[in-house]
Write a protein that binds this DNA or RNA. Structure first.
Length: 602
RNA sequence: GCGCCCGUAGCUCAGGGGAUAGAGCAACGGACUUCUAAUCCGUGGGUCGUAGGUUCGAAUCCUACCGGGCGUGCCA
C-alpha cells in the first residue's frame, strides 16, 4: 500500500524536505490510539526556528483528509496520520482477495537478474545442521527476490573439489571396502573422513599423501578421477533426495570442479594485471595496499585454491548470466575470503565486482564448542528433520487423530518448524544448537503460524458448508486436507468457492460493520505485507518477513478469541469471513516465500 | 598481536537516532456447552556489557575498555 509515499508526497510540498528524506523518518506510533503512521518534526525545528511541537500543530492544521487518511493530529512533536478504516476495509481487503496468491508480489525488480549462491555443501561429507542455514536463508532470498519481480538464478556451488578429496582418496585406498561404500555411501565416506583425521594425528605423513592425491586429481590421474567421480555421484544423489524433501531446488548445480579448465586462464589474467608475485614457490596476490592480507592463488605444488576457483566461477557467471547482483550466502567466518575475492575481481578490471555481496550468517555451535566434521562432532540434518516430523506426527495423533493425510501434514509442520527456526533470528547471530528449541512447536514458531492458517481454513470450510446446506465440495470424503504443492489441489475448493462469493460481495457493497480493534489491527497489519517483503529484500534478511508473519498470526489469534465469525449476524459474518480470508492469503503467501507450506488442517 | 562480528528480562531473541525498551520460553494465576487450547487473557521480571563522547533526543552513532565468537598465506 502506498501510504508512506502518500505521506511523503504531501509533506514534501509543505516542508521542503525530499520525499525520500521524509519516508526514511516515518515511523509507526507505539500505540494504536496515536495513529498509524507518524512523522517526527524534530528535523524541521532548526530550519524553521520553531519548536517541533509548534511545527506538528501547524502541519496538522494544513493537511486535508484524503482517500487514504481520514485525519492527522499532532501529539507533542509528532504529526500522526490516521488511516481511513473504510479505505482499508473496502479497498485493500477486496484487493487481497482478488489477487490471492499474487498478493504481495511486485515488479520492483523487473528486468534485473540476481544470482544467489547458497547451500554449497561439501560433497562427501554428510549434510549437517550447519549447512541448513545457508540452504534455508538462500532459498528464502531466492523466493523473496522472485516475488519482487527479479529474475533469480539459484546456484548450488558444490564443494566437490579440494584437498578433502585427496584425504578421502587416501583413506579409501588404505582402509576402504567396496561393499560398505555401495551400501551407505555418505555415511561411509564420512566415517573414512573422520578416521583419516584420527590417524593423521599419529601419522602426519598422511596429510602429505592426501595433498599429493589431490594434486594427481588435478592433473587428471585416472585412478584419482575414477574414485572422485564415484564419491561425487553417490553423495550428490543423497543431497538431492534431501533437497526434494525440503522442497528446495536450484537452477544450477555447477560446483567447484566445473571450473578446473578455467583456472589457468584466471591466473594468467591476474598475472597480466600485475597482481601476482611469487613467494616461497606459491603465487600470491598482494592486497596490502588495500588493507587486506595477501592471498594465495596457487600453491607451491601447483594446485589451485578455493579463491582461484571462486574467481573463475564469478567471471564465468557474469559471462553467462550477466547478473545485476550476486549474493553469496556463506558463513560469516569467510568474510575475509570474500573481501579478498571482490577486491581481486575489481583489480582484474571487472566493474561488476561491486555488484557482488557476501550475505554472512552466524555459526551453529554446541554449548561446549563448535561443530566439527573432522572430529565427528556434528548433528546430521536428516536426523533433525526426522525427529521434528515424528514429533509433529505424535502431536497430530494426540490432538487430531481423525485428520486425513497425517503424514503430509506432519511433514509440513515438522519441516516448517525447523526451517522457520533458522529464519526467525537475524542471520548474523551465532546460534546454539538445542534439541528442545528445535522441537518446540509453541510460541514464535512456524506451527503457530500454520495453526492460525488452519483455523482460518476451518472457518471458511464451515462457512461454505453452511452456505451449501451441508453438502461439502471438499472431495469424496468431505474432510479433505489437501496440501499446497499439489498443483490443482493446493487450494481447497470450498475455500476458493467461498472467497469467490465474498469477492463478489465485496464489489457490490461497502464493508461497514468491521471496526473492532482486533479487526482494525488485522487489516492494518496486512497492509504492511509488501513493505515487509521489500525490507527483507533490501537487507537480505528473511527474518523481517518471518517476524511479520508471527505478528499477523498473533493478531489473528487475538481476533479469533474475541470476535466470533460463524455465529455473528449474517452481514457481519460475511465481512468477517472476508477479513479472515484475507489473513489466510497473506499467511500462506508469506510462508511460501520462506519455503514453508501452509496445511489447511492440522 | 592485529582485524571483523556479537553483548537488551532467568533463558532465546526483536527493536539499529525519536513517544512509556517489546515478544516467545520458563514461573505463577485464569479461559475449552461457543469457528481446532499447537490457542488466548493476566501477574511478576530490565544499571539495554562498562566508561566517556556527539545530539534537542542514544539500547541505537563515535572512542576506549571488558566478556564471548570468528578470522588472520599453501583448508573450504
Amino acid at each position: 500500500m502506498p501510504f508512506r509515499k502518500e505521506i511523503a508526497f504531501r509533506l514534501a510540498a509543505l516542508t521542503g524536505l525530499t520525499e525520500a528524506e521524509i519516508e526514511t523518518c516515518l515511523e509507526i506510533p507505539p500505540e494504536a490510539a496515536l495513529g498509524d503512521y507518524a512523522f517526527p518534526c524534530f528535523i524541521l525545528a532548526k530550519r524553521l526556528k520553531k519548536s517541533p511541537q509548534a511545527i506538528a500543530a501547524e502541519l496538522a492544521g494544513s493537511i486535508e483528509p484524503c482517500e487514504y487518511f481520514e485525519r492527522t493530529a499532532n501529539a507533542g512533536p509528532y504529526l500522526n496520520f490516521y488511516l481511513r478504516r473504510a479505505y482499508l476495509f473496502a479497498k485493500l481487503l477486496p484487493q487481497i482477495l482478488r489477487e490471492g496468491p499474487a498478493y504481495g508480489r511486485s515488479m520492483e525488480g523487473e528486468g534485473r537478474t540476481v544470482l544467489v549462491d547458497y547451500s554449497a555443501p561439501n560433497i562427501a561429507k554428510p549434510f549437517s545442521v550447519g549447512h541448513l542455514r545457508s540452504t534455508v536463508i538462500g532459498s528464502a532470498l531466492c523466493r523473496l527476490y522472485r516475488a519482487c519481480g527479479y529474475k533469480t538464478v539459484g546456484i548450488n556451488h558444490l564443494g566437490d573439489w579440494g584437498t578433502q578429496f585427496g584425504k578421502l582418496i587416501t583413506a579409501y585406498r588404505r582402509w576402504g571396502e567396496e561393499g560398505r561404500l555401495a551400501g551407505e555411501p555418505v555415511q561411509y565416506l564420512y566415517h573414512l573422513y573422520v578416521r583419516f583425521h584420527q590417524e593423521a594425528v599419529k601419522e602426519p605423513q598422511l596429510e602429505d599423501e592426501a595433498r599429493s592425491w589431490f594434486r594427481r586429481l588435478e592433473t587428471g590421474d585416472p585412478e584419482a578421477r575414477e574414485l572422485w567421480g564415484r564419491f561425487r555421484d553417490l553423495s550428490l544423489a543423497d543431497f538431492q533426495r534431501l533437497y526434494r524433501y525440503l522442497g528446495i531446488s536450484f537452477d544450477s548445480y555447477m560446483g567447484e570442479s566445473d571450473y578446473n579448465d578455467r583456472l589457468t586462464g584466471t591466473i594468467e589474467l591476474a598475472r597480466t594485471r600485475g597482481l601476482l608475485m611469487e613467494s616461497e614457490g606459491a603465487l600470491v596476490a598482494d592486497l596490502e595496499p588495500y588493507g587486506l592480507p595477501a592471498c594465495l592463488l596457487r600453491k607451491k605444488d601447483g594446485a589451485a585454491l578455493y579463491i582461484t576457483r571462486d574467481l573463475a566461477a564469478a567471471i564465468y557467471r557474469h559471462e553467462t548470466f550477466a547478473f545485476d547482483r550476486m549474493l553469496y550466502v556463506v558463513g560469516a567466518e569467510q568474510t575475509l575470503h570474500f573481501q579478498q575475492l571482490f577486491k581481486l575481481l575489481e583489480l582484474m578490471g571487472f566493474d561488476w565486482a561491486q555488484s557482488c555481496l557476501h550475505v554472512p550468517f552466524g555459526l551453529i555451535h554446541f554449548q561446549d564448542g563448535r561443530m566439527s566434521t573432522r572430529e565427528g562432532k556434528v548433528i546430521f540434518l536428516e536426523e533433525v528433520l526426522q525427529k521434528a516430523v515424528e514429533l509433529a506426527r505424535e502431536i497430530i495423533e494426540e490432538k487430531n487423530p481423525g485428520l486425513r493425510e497425517k503424514d503430509r501434514v506432519a511433514q509440513a509442520v515438522g519441516l516448517g518448524a525447523v526451517i522457520f527456526g533458522d529464519l526467525i533470528n537475524d542471520r548474523i547471530k551465532d546460534v546454539e544448537f538445542d534439541w528442545d528449541k528445535v522441537l518446540d512447536f509453541a510460541g514464535e514458531t512456524a506451527p503457530y503460524i500454520q495453526y492460525s492458517h488452519a483455523r482460518i481454513c476451518s472457518i471458511l470450510r464451515r462457512a461454505a458448508e453452511k452456505n451449501k446446506g451441508g453438502s461439502s465440495a471438499a472431495g469424496p470424503a468431505g474432510e479433505g486436507a489437501p496440501l499446497p504443492g499439489d498443483a490443482a489441489q493446493d487450494w481447497d475448493l470450498t475455500c476458493r468457492q467461498h472467497i469467490c462469493d465474498t469477492n463478489r460481495a465485496a464489489q457490490g457493497q461497502a464493508l461497514t460493520l468491521l471496526g473492532e480493534p482486533e479487526e482494525e489491527a488485522l487489516v492494518i497489519t496486512m497492509s504492511r505485507f509488501s513493505e515487509e517483503i521489500s525490507r527483507a529484500v533490501r537487507d537480505n534478511r528473511p527474518s523481517c518477513l518471518a517476524r511479520y508473519l508471527l505478528e499477523l498470526a498473533r493478531s489473528f489469534n487475538k481476533f479469533y478469541h474475541n470476535c466470533p465469525v460463524l455465529t455473528a449476524a449474517e452481514k457481519l459474518r460475511e465481512e468477517r469471513l472476508m477479513l479472515v480470508a484475507g489473513v489466510r492469503i497473506v499467511l500462506e503467501n508469506g510462508l511460501a516465500m520462506l519455503g514453508i507450506e501452509a496445511p489447511q488442517e492440522m
